[in-house]
């Protein structure tokens, strides 16, 4: 059994390993580190992650900024999408009232919002909005621009909202009725039937929303006024022809995104086994 597990593990590593070999080989053949650095250079970057790269600070510092931005934008997006999704899923009138409006904005990618968001908010930051006194705290919070948070929140909103609406509407009618005949109030139905009934969909939505907000982060961090973060590291590294740093940044994004996704998947399979057994 152990042996089988080991072979399965080894098997799943074949493609990544082949990719690395191919990359090394091409990098070596081309011999143009400014266009395609060898994997070793990237490994080196990670080994020295705490160095101050091209004046932008260390990798962990930039990752921390990016994660915080996502955390803020994501929370706002979820805080709007979750209640709205529940209400629209349950009340047909709410659905009729809001669905058209929301659907119009749905297909617009976050990047398309960039110009208009810049026009509205410019380089306005949380520090300025809350009128923090100048100093170290101001300097830190000045890195969280309203425009970035808007884009990330926007990217979060739709996947969460869509899944929650679908989740609520797909809760079995008999479950709601059996609660009603047991004397449930509307409130009870909301909290004891609809909410638990669609948690798997909510978790799924939260997971897709996180992936989406992480994708939006990069375009948010490419906005003017951005001075740090993994997205900024990538654009800036490109401007100074440090392709190795571009790739390092890309790997960070991929890796952290996959990690967050994995955590969510773990939660949903651990906590919602019942969901896969609904007839």
């Amino acid at each position: 059994m152990k042996l089988k597990k080991f072979f399965e593990f080894a098997f799943s590593l074949i493609m990544p390993a082949a990719f690395l070999c191919l990359w090394s080989f091409i990098a070596w053949k081309m011999n143009k580190p400014a266009q395609l650095p060898a994997p070793g250079v990237i490994v080196d970057n990670f080994a020295n992650a705490f160095d101050n790269f091209i004046g932008l600070g260390s990798i962990p510092r930039n990752v921390a900024y990016s994660l915080t931005r996502v955390a803020i934008g994501y929370s706002i997006g979820v805080a709007l999408a979750l209640p709205l999704g529940l209400i629209m899923g349950y009340y047909k009138s709410a659905r009729l009232f809001l669905e058209n409006l929301l659907s119009i904005f749905k297909p617009i990618p976050a990047i398309a919002w960039q110009p208009i968001v810049l026009g509205w908010f410019g380089v306005l930051s949380i520090a300025r909005v809350f009128n923090l006194p100048y100093g170290e705290t101001y300097a830190i919070w000045d890195n969280y621009k309203i425009s970035m948070i808007f884009l990330i929140a926007f990217g979060t909103f739709y996947p969460v909202w869509g899944n929650v609406v679908f989740g609520v509407t797909s809760v079995q009618k008999t479950l709601i009725e059996s609660a009603r005949v047991l004397g449930a109030s509307t409130w009870d139905i909301f909290f004891h039937v609809l909410l638990p009934g669609c948690t798997p969909h909510i978790v799924n939505g939260l997971r897709m929303g996180l992936t989406s907000s992480w994708v939006c982060l990069v375009s948010a961090e490419m906005l003017p006024g951005s001075m740090c973060g993994i997205g900024y590291l990538i654009t800036h590294a490109y401007e100074v022809s440090r392709m190795d740093l571009v790739i390092t940044g890309m790997i960070c994004i991929g890796f952290i995104g996959a990690l967050l996704d994995g955590i969510f998947r773990l939660i949903s399979t651990r906590c919602f086994t019942w969901a896969s057994h609904i007839q």
Partner: peptide
């Protein structure tokens, strides 16, 4: 009270 034919227990 009502007992339905099927699938009326809260699965969670």
């Amino acid at each position: 009270g009502v007992v339905f034919q099927n699938y009326s227990l809260m699965p969670w």
